[in-house]
Amino acid sequence: MIVFVRFNSSHGFPVEVDSDTSIFQLKEVVAKRQGVPADQLRVIFAGKELRNDWTVQNCDLDQQSIVHIVQRPWRKGQEMNATGGDDPRNAAGGCEREPQSLTRVDLSSSVLPGDSVGLAVILHTDSRKDSPPAGSPAGRSIYNSFYVYCKGPCQRVQPGKLRVQCSTCRQATLTLTQGPSCWDDVLIPNRMSGECQSPHCPGTSAEFFFKCGAHPTSDKETSVALHLIATNSRNITCITCTDVRSPVLVFQCNSRHVICLDCFHLYCVTRLNDRQFVHDPQLGYSLPCVAGCPNSLIKELHHFRILGEEQYNRYQQYGAEECVLQMGGVLCPRPGCGAGLLPEPDQRKVTCEGGNGLGCGFAFCRECKEAYHEGECSAVFEASGTTTQAYRVDERAAEQARWEAASKETIKKTTKPCPRCHVPVEKNGGCMHMKCPQPQCRLEWCWNCGCEWNRVCMGDHWFDV
């Protein structure tokens, strides 16, 4: 396979590697080409510095992935760790964990309700045991953590790749202090920090972006993250068709209702045909949960890209028209025109101005929308079919299609509260000796007794199943 190397943020060049090629071997190839010592090179990928003893497969490097290699003399205490030698983080029983690669970060837990604080980093599902597709590297999971809308060759929703760059020099040479644990960490600028490894760059702020994971991409090709779309790892039924499908869209209502993408497309087109989208002054033209839940309008309007190009163009047109109407304007009634106009409040005669090729020149009556006339309008008909009709959803289907309910059931079956801080902690095999993952707590306690870890627990039921 081919990976592209950008040395000291210059133009990239291809390097041929195998899945079992080590990072140090990659350094040696680059060092020979650039005429520099291999031990002064640092390989940066997806916000993480890659260790010498890791392989291309370990690092989730795919065909035509772009890695950054910078030349920086080692500072005291760094060289041993980078070589894969006596790194205290690798000691058996050590409590410190390697910062998780962005290629394996899962933010789907952050669609849980606000009262489930902490689960994004504490609760991990076991539903990723799908067998890898044919042709994928051994052991590589097909679980997708992110979804994007690819405006490039795909023109559809695709699995996405999370990447990070330095907000100062805009190069992907920043190593994160810690990985993101929720969508806010990724979507809110300057929320996460790190250290830029580019020479002479003092940058410390992280800037995240997404790429389409279905095809090789260049540095400049980015895609918009659709953070309401998630892999259906909890096997929730769709609120409309009641099938279990994946991926799904999880509405931001209190129940976190789930809808499959085909039904979401149908829901949007139906509402669009009836012009029953909601115009929100802050958000724009949007839709609420299909069950009509309060405070559930979709905030990231790129989710409506699921409509496809033709329907999305209609959505944008109707949204612009609705904006004009909300501002007190009118639409030209001549067939084939429909231009938005903003006449004076007491102006009865409205002319669709033909300047700049935008208007048709038609003069019409503001009251009856017919060709302009003197005197009273002959008839004014009330528009028919403008009443909002509820999208029919079966109550039982709505009850079963809740992301929140599956989460709470998982928590109930696989977790116990920490005796000190009461945060839910998952036990997935292993011994009875637990350690609270909350940095402010870190209590060592017994899963069996529910009390602080002691010699009695150690001698009596340390390794009970």
Rank of each mutant, 00 (worst) to 15 (best):
Q171V: 07
E322L: 04
S198W: 06
A138C: 10
R97M: 13
P439H: 07
A172H: 12
A38N: 04
A91D: 11
R170E: 08
E310W: 05
V350A: 06
V3R: 03
C263H: 00
Y285T: 04
G139A: 10
F146R: 01
L107N: 15
Q276D: 09
F13M: 07
S384A: 12
C238E: 01
C368L: 02
G284I: 01
Q440F: 15
N232F: 00
P294K: 07
R420N: 15
Q440H: 15
V330Q: 07
E426Q: 11
A339D: 05
A225E: 04
V67G: 01
A82W: 14
H433Q: 04
G93Q: 12
D280N: 09
G292S: 08
E409V: 08
V224H: 09
S22Y: 09
H68Q: 04
C446Y: 01
L325C: 04
N58Q: 14
C323V: 11
P180G: 00
H303T: 12
C421Y: 01
E49D: 03
R420A: 13
C268K: 00
D346P: 07
T173C: 08
V17E: 02
S141R: 12
E195Q: 12
V105Q: 14
A379Y: 14
V248W: 01
G213M: 07
E98K: 10
Q165E: 09
G308M: 04
P37I: 06
T217I: 08
V224K: 13
K299G: 06
T270F: 04
P333S: 04
V324Q: 05
D280W: 07
V164N: 04
D126H: 08
V224N: 09
K211P: 02
R72E: 13
N90M: 14
A291I: 05
W445V: 05
D346S: 11
K413Y: 14
K349Q: 06
E444W: 05
G336L: 09
P180I: 02
Q57E: 10
D39E: 13
S110L: 07
Q440R: 09
R420H: 15
M80C: 10
D262I: 03
C238P: 01
H200F: 10
S101R: 09
A405S: 14
F4P: 06
I142N: 14
H11M: 04
C150P: 00
C368H: 02
P99A: 13
R396D: 14
M327N: 14
P424Y: 07
Q400N: 15
L107H: 14
R140V: 11
G152C: 06
C154V: 00
V29N: 07
Q155K: 14
A401I: 01
C238M: 01
E49K: 02
N81C: 15
L107S: 15
Q400Y: 11
R314S: 03
A371F: 10
G179F: 05
Q316T: 13
S10Q: 06
N235R: 12
G357T: 15
D185A: 00
R75W: 13
G160N: 01
C332L: 02
I66F: 04
A320P: 09
Q282T: 12
Y312Q: 03
F277P: 02
R245T: 08
R305A: 11
A206M: 03
T21V: 04
G118A: 08
C196D: 00
F364R: 02
R33T: 05
